[in-house]
């Protein structure tokens, strides 16, 4: 199982669930996009809400196991991965 933490404002798409799990067989790796596509079967609109011009929404960062996943939607996840979508950090 990989766990996707649902951004609070998108939880209406998951029936209020803070996180949802996706079955990933041990040893298999899939992309974050594939992960979201699998979720979209049950939670319509989730992938679209995070997309802009078919890529990750500008200003949103993917974190996998608390590390910034630089590859974004192309980053790989596996069983046990924890995935967050957060504002990308900038600074002054």
């Amino acid at each position: 199982m990989a766990t996707v933490h649902i951004p609070a404002l998108l939880r209406d798409l998951t029936g209020g669930a803070e996180q949802v799990s996706v079955e990933i067989p041990p040893g298999e790796k899939i992309t974050v996009r594939q992960l979201l596509e699998r979720l979209s079967d049950d939670h319509e609109g989730l992938l679209d809400a995070l997309l802009y011009d078919d890529d990750l929404m500008p200003g949103i960062a993917v974190l996998i196991d608390s590390d910034h996943a630089l590859m974004g939607l192309q980053a790989k996840v596996e069983a046990g991965s924890e995935v967050h979508f957060l504002p990308a950090v900038v600074g002054g």
């Binding site: 951004p7 809400a49 979508f85």
Partner: peptide, 20 residues
């Protein structure tokens, strides 16, 4: 709101929420 746009014109251009 995370890529979803409301319909009504407003000065509020973005809403961010975190909940635990």
């Amino acid at each position: 709101i995370m890529g979803k746009k409301e319909l009504k014109a407003t000065n509020v251009c973005m809403h961010t929420r975190h909940q635990q």
